[in-house]
Design a protein around this nucleic acid. Structure first.
Length: 313
DNA sequence: AAAAATGGCAACCGCTTATTT
DNA sequence: GAAATAAGCGGTTGCCATTTT
């Protein structure tokens, strides 16, 4: 429901003055204000941020703008074929849980994934399936058994597989938590935690046995024998993790919005914790529990996991 | 060249969930 | 425990650019 820029929303009070809230597209000036504020003050209550940054926007709008567009760790740019495959695969398991899917794609937002799905993937799958005229393909809003004939994924099959694994070769998880075939890469929204998105795990990459026969689930290949000990994301190597990027100029230079390149291009990594001068890594302790093998559980947290490296094309 | 159709995506809305008072 | 507030999420809309007619 995007309205033209001139459209104004409801009121907000600043210094007891009634101000009209802006809606619609963000101007570069607004972006700059928000970036500046976020860099200086970090994340807080969004309605305060909106007010204190001098933006005539509601907090919700600021949050969205930051998360979906201005965050320095966003990858942006076209989805790679690997990412596409991964999205399709995850969607076959998770359905329209865009945030969960996005959480497993470094530098991507739920909005981005959702848009990509609705505008591109859906269509592609439709074409594919109309050619193969598989009976099992319709709209993709629900988890499917077959996605375009590529991925034979069935929720309970996966579950069974995990159950089997747990009874036989499932390792005693170091963290005692549930097994997650596609662990979220990070708590991306937690500005107190450092993360280096583009350097996300790489061991072989997708394609090479990643999918086949649930390749990713094969104990021998992916460490089900017990090795989940990859270092947490935030401690992985970063090519040039110089907090020198810690300036709006750099952000602008790298941000699509300003010159069509990506914020954290493939050859550049950010640690937001560094950018913001923060050292807490709250995410490390999130929610580790052993529980029943429900799907949600499956997709819940786990410590780091050999994964894949996406490239922006 | 102009109009219409289509695609991509930013941003809003409304609902749900979590947290605070 | 209830109410208020904030945050998170998915669905949807509509603008703009590109492609097709």
């Amino acid at each position: 429901m995007r309205k033209p820029d001139r459209d104004m929303g409801k009121d907000m009070r600043v210094n007891n003055k009634k101000m009209k809230l802006r809606k619609g597209l963000w101007s570069p000036e607004e972006d700059e204000k928000l970036i500046k504020y976020m860099l200086n003050k970090g994340q807080g209550c969004w309605s305060d941020i909106a007010r204190n940054a001098g933006l005539q926007r509601c907090g919700k709008s600021c949050r969205l703008r930051w998360i979906n567009y201005l965050r320095p760790d966003l990858k942006r740019g076209a989805f790679s074929p690997q990412e596409e495959e991964f999205i399709i695969h995850l969607h076959s398991i998770l359905g329209n849980r865009w945030s969960q899917i996005a959480a497993r794609l470094p530098g991507r937002t739920d909005n981005e994934v959702k848009n990509f799905w609705n505008s591109t993937v859906k269509k592609r799958l439709k074409n594919k399936t109309s050619v193969s005229s598989s009976p099992n393909n319709n709209d993709s809003s629900e988890p499917r058994d077959v996605v375009g004939g590529i991925f034979p994924v069935h929720e309970h099959d996966v579950m069974a597989l995990f159950k089997d694994s747990s009874s036989t070769s499932m390792p005693p998880m170091a963290t005692g938590n549930q097994f997650d075939p596609f662990p979220p890469l990070n708590n991306r929204y937690d500005m107190t935690g450092a993360f280096d998105v583009p350097t996300c795990i790489t061991q072989g990459g997708m394609g090479e046995g990643f999918w086949g026969d649930y390749g990713i689930l094969e104990p021998g290949k992916i460490g089900l024998e017990g090795d989940f000990s990859l270092p947490p994301l935030e401690s992985r190597s970063i090519e040039d993790n110089n907090a020198a990027n810690n300036s709006i100029d750099n952000m602008k230079r790298n941000n699509n919005h300003y010159n069509n390149t990506c914020f954290s291009n493939t050859d550049q990594s950010f640690k937001v914790g560094d950018m913001f001068g923060l050292e807490n890594h709250q995410w490390q302790g999130e929610n580790l529990r052993m529980g029943e093998w429900d799907l949600e559980g499956l997709m819940d947290n786990i410590s780091s996991f050999p994964f894949l490296q996406f490239q922006v094309e």
